[in-house]
Design a protein around this nucleic acid. Structure first.
Length: 218
DNA sequence: TGCCAGGCCGGGT
DNA sequence: ACCCGGCATGGC
């Protein structure tokens, strides 16, 4: 069903339609981690406000956030939504980073990939997508990020089924594509761009979608 | 004006 | 091993 040629055709079409995306939209690996947690089920525009608040207050460092009470942090990130939950999740991640890795992402990323992923998943508030986003976009590791857009696009083209798990969908890409972080980076960013533009929930057809009919393109 | 946005957790079956 | 309610702001 899904094979290497099809995945490459999908990539080609998206790239030709929308060009390079240059993700992640963050200035440092640490900022990428914060953004990855804040953007859970939330519009990126709202996340940018929250990050801007932290930046403006000089709080965008592991040390500053480590010292900041969770209730205060919550107020800064309010625009990102779910702000009390996310303040807790951020603190969990910061505590993890500071106390187990001397506040150094490089220390975390120096672990074998599967081990680093496992450790991230051990932090309450970091699930598979957030962990993989951190590994790929902050760490430059060759791991494919699956999100709601990825799932919806695959479903809409009959390339996946509802019962497929995160792992199933991730395998679908990683078993057929070369493990290159630059490719995985662009691929996922393009899926998000296409999803935002052409593959909204509840809107059945996307006549302008660059992926229209790819499932039959071989 | 509802619907949607780059999920995840914890409790209940 | 699933299933579901809860979490919240801002744009269109």
């Amino acid at each position: 069903m899904v094979n290497k040629d099809l995945l490459e055709e999908i990539y080609r079409r998206m790239y030709e339609a929308l060009g390079p995306q240059g993700w992640w939209p963050g200035e440092s690996p640490f900022e990428v981690c914060i953004g990855a947690i804040l953007t859970q089920n939330t519009n990126w525009q709202n996340v940018e406000r929250a990050i801007a608040n932290l930046k403006e207050a000089g709080l965008l460092s592991p040390q500053a956030l480590y010292a900041l009470p969770v209730e205060i942090l919550a107020e800064y990130i309010r625009p990102a939504g779910y702000f009390r939950v996310k303040a807790r999740r951020l603190k969990n991640f910061i505590k993890f980073l500071v106390e187990e890795f001397q506040a150094s992402l490089d220390n975390l990323f120096s672990l074998p990939l599967s081990k680093a992923r496992q450790r991230l998943l051990g932090v309450s508030g970091i699930g598979p997508e957030t962990a993989d986003s951190i590994l790929l976009y902050a760490g430059g590791k060759p791991i494919f990020v699956v999100d709601a857009y990825t799932r919806r696009i695959l479903l809409r083209h009959g390339l996946a089924t509802e019962d497929m798990t995160y792992q199933d969908l991730q395998d679908l890409f990683m078993k057929h594509l070369p493990p290159e972080s630059t490719l995985f980076n662009e691929y996922h960013a393009l899926l998000v761009a296409v999803g935002k533009k052409f593959c909204r929930p509840r809107k059945p057809l996307c006549s302008a979608c660059p992926l229209k009919g790819v499932e039959n393109a071989l």
